[in-house]
Design a protein around this nucleic acid. Structure first.
Lengths: 148, 148
DNA sequence: CTGTGTGCAAACTCTTTGCATAAGT
DNA sequence: ACTTATGCAAAGAGTTTGCACACAG
């Protein structure tokens, strides 16, 4: 058993604290108190979307002392390590998604609320060729919602 | 009839001024010198994508004296009037698109360069129902490109 | 004239950075 | 011990705002 299996598609039961530490190590990140705490908040309960500010507030109210700068640093480190994906949804702030697999989003403009669209139903057809010397990195689909 | 030959490729200074003015009036905006100038840059030559900074620089180097604050104000007024659409592509800055119809975009991450995908080929299928009390406002598809 | 638009600079928000201190291995 | 991470506060980008002056109608 290697533990380095596909992270996405196992319906792994909610992670316990001690699962974060090896995960960080595998990613080449020292499991500091702050990183473990943020990791638990992020990966301890299913897919999540966070802003730096929101995660910071959450950490504080969970009794973890972390600075906002460290939250930003950590989010970027996690992103670099492939544990998070950053979403450009709303010019105003950066969203990070713990679901790094290909999927799309609902976004409620008024509330700034972001939801995954699960369900594999979405298909984008009829894409033209990318311009010369370019290739498609990925395709973001954001379904913007308003109150009915 | 030979009028089919030229459109906006003449090198004469197009006198769009007079086309912009009524357009602004119809939108309930006073045709001030600055608004007409920016309107000409934006609508005088086909579909465009601009950032506030870029448009400001362009106006200056076209000899039009406009402040950056006015460029921002004007872009938002134009947007409110339905003449522009704002795109959330890249957290860092706001892009405005003179093409307000439904269409999608290529975005080259490294350069921050944005291109329309014309061609009506793109189709998005398999969308799930929006959550309760919500309806779809619109769908943004951004095809992100990297150097091959 | 009258009211709206403009320009400037200062304010604001989100994010990043430099540097001394603290913590991991 | 040696190295890397953290925290703070200050700096940075992009964008917005308040207020006096300028201009369109």
């Amino acid at each position: 058993m290697d533990g380095t299996r596909d992270r996405q598609d196992l319906d792994e039961p909610i992670v316990v604290g001690d699962e974060i530490t090896p995960r960080l190590r595998r990613a080449g990140l020292r499991p500091t108190r702050q990183r473990v705490a943020l990791g638990q908040l992020l990966f301890g309960s299913g897919d999540r979307h966070v802003t730096a500010e929101a995660l910071h507030a959450e950490a504080l109210s969970a009794g973890e002392q972390v600075s906002l700068a460290t939250v930003y640093n950590t989010l970027h480190q996690f992103k670099r390590a492939g544990l998070l994906r950053e979403l450009a949804i709303d010019g105003a702030r950066a969203y990070f998604d713990t679901n790094t697999s290909n999927h799309n989003h609902f976004f409620v403009e008024e509330e700034g609320e972001l939801m995954d669209i699960h369900g594999h139903g979405i298909r984008v057809d009829g894409l033209p060729e990318p311009p010369d010397g370019m290739k498609i990195s990925h395709i973001d689909v954001v379904v913007r919602l308003v109150k009915a």
